[in-house]
Nucleic acid binder design. Structure first.
Lengths: 346, 346
DNA sequence: CTGTTAGCGCATTCAG
DNA sequence: CTGAATGCGCTAACAG
């Protein structure tokens, strides 16, 4: 073996390495590395020389080598319950865009609303030493929570907030809105419009749905009647919405309004009402939640609660980027609010 | 410096490495590595010892180190046009599940139907040295094609097939169905039912849409009338479907059927028909494409073409896994067919 | 079937 | 502000 310990020959692989760039720029590899990563402590002229060499040689950094050397990848894990709900797609799309623009790749995991699946995904993805985490809500296994905490990786929670003094772990970051307040606001609006027997029809029964029920109950106060709550753990769908309308009509014929926990349920109910000749809002008013696509095309157009999922994705990604850069984040819990969209179904 | 070149001390980092596992199992690191990766050339007893050590120490492999040493990661890049189309979500979901079960992670990229965006995503994601690629269709920039070819990474194309002797590059793998045949079949069915002035209404105008138009034209033969084609490059939506119905009714009042290029368009048209009091199928028949969710709930229930996107995702992932394992793939181009779903809208 | 040697390409020390 | 040395954790390539 030739004694060229320092002057290592390049392998025959066509790959252009940082070494080559450094050589072409007449600097040391570490300077090239620093220049590329935008560390400020590099002379402007050297940065230019490096940049030129990169362009000339067509250098492409190796994320694996970076991750190995720095113990941190450029990937962000994003965990959502479902891909078949427009809600999460909008969230994801916004988050992914924002992260990509900031130089991060997204590793998307779908939990199907199962904490165990989430935990498994976390275990798998954490191997990659992601730079950041975006997770949905706060409902997870203790093990999952421990994994997140223990990893020391910045994490932003989306769709809900857990603010207030009662918060034990002061390190939680979140971007969302109050599901409870949203449930309350829509119910209050229905009451304001004179509806008295307001039913609540829900599917999936995930934590956020239950928070909306809380808001509904609180708004109703003494007028609340458990017999008007129609909860079904099956996933949300047009067909289930239709079935729930039938169920309400049969079991609570005096209901004058139905607050559906998600727009697809409400849209399905509207279609069913049309089918069986039930007047909306004459016989019964129908309102939904989330303002998913198509609601404005229904007969009658659906009243609903517009939730800011796109903005949530955007803000969460931005907050996470700040955390990953080690910057201070002014607001730990951002409430993006919601908006009542009142069309003709109530 | 102590002369312990060989007997490297472990760093103070809590991380359990393959080294530790090997030591605990009383074998060399490479044997532990081989055992973990399931290489057959390891004695059963040693495999057991290694497995036990892994469990006992809670060893977790480092993907970055693996990728760096082997020049290949365990990630698969999946590129789809859109996340807001149920079609691609189903495809993605099935593919992701299958890949995960086989030990691969998915890197999802959304191209928004822009070849340039696809090329940029490819450039970005290829840095990770993915183990495989799943891309939608065949319509891409030359540069993107070159990137794929040049990378030498196994690639499966989905949603379309380019089979036949005319195929220059014999290395193409694909899983899909004939969009052309599907367009043809539905048109033929409408003709069989006695419709004579069949309009075609399309949005997005991506390559697969255009193939469906071809099928439509071929089925019509001499009866084809360009004035009955209503093409709009805007993205597909309920609202656009409604607008297209209006357009057809206004500009081609003698049209007795409309073949919508996607179900959301068709569903939007059905809603609009209800709104303006147009009888379906009495005044005009309406059919869609893809059999997206909700079609069966429409008034009347929507006739459409069911496309096997879930199966496509599954098969594509399986084929890719085989390719990544270096196995031979019997069929390079798999045609999964389609199915006419005839409900009451025609 | 098992072990030895030698990096993969980069960033983290620490010097200067 | 720049550089030298060192090793991240793992596997490829060869020996035996």
């Amino acid at each position: 073996m030739t004694p060229l310990t320092a002057t290592k020959r390049r392998r025959a692989t066509g790959r252009v390495t940082l070494h080559d760039v450094a050589q072409a720029a007449g600097v040391s590899p570490i300077t090239a590395s620093r220049a590329l990563r935008g560390e400020r402590s590099v002379a402007t002229e050297l940065v230019e020389r490096v940049t030129a060499a990169v362009a000339q040689l067509g250098y492409v950094p190796d994320p694996a080598a970076r991750a190995l050397a720095s113990a941190r990848s450029n990937q962000v894990v994003v965990l959502i319950p479902l891909l078949s709900n427009g809600l999460f797609v909008d969230l994801l799309d916004a988050a992914q865009r924002t992260l990509l623009a900031a130089g991060y790749q997204s590793l998307i995991g779908v939990t199907h609303y199962h904490p165990e699946e989430e935990e498994a995904l976390l275990r798998t993805y954490l191997m990659n030493r992601p730079a950041g985490l975006i997770v949905t809500g706060f409902d997870r296994t203790d093990a999952a929570r421990a994994l997140i905490e223990g990893s020391g990786i910045p994490c932003v929670h989306v769709m809900e907030n857990r603010a207030g003094p009662a918060l034990p772990s002061s390190a939680l970051h979140s971007v969302g809105f109050s599901q409870q307040a949203a449930g309350h606001a829509m119910t209050a609006e229905l009451m304001r419009r004179g509806y008295r027997r307001i039913a609540f029809a829900a599917a999936q029964l995930d934590p956020r749905t239950l928070q909306r029920v809380e808001g509904y109950r609180a708004a109703l106060g003494d007028a609340h009647d458990p017999a008007l709550e129609f909860m079904d753990a099956a996933p949300s769908s047009f067909a289930l919405g239709a079935a729930l309308l039938d169920r309400v009509l049969a079991q609570a014929p005096d209901a004058d309004a139905i607050f559906f926990n998600n727009d697809d349920l409400a849209q399905g109910a509207l279609l069913q009402a049309l089918r069986i000749g039930v007047q909306v809002p004459g016989r019964v008013a129908v309102v939904g939640f989330n303002d998913l696509t198509g609601g404005d095309q229904m007969l009658p157009p659906l009243s609903t609660v517009r939730t800011p999922r796109g903005d949530i994705g955007l803000h969460a990604a931005r907050m996470l980027v700040a955390l990953m850069h080690g910057e201070a984040v002014p607001e730990r819990c951002v409430d993006l609010g919601f908006e009542l969209v009142l069309r003709e179904s109530c």
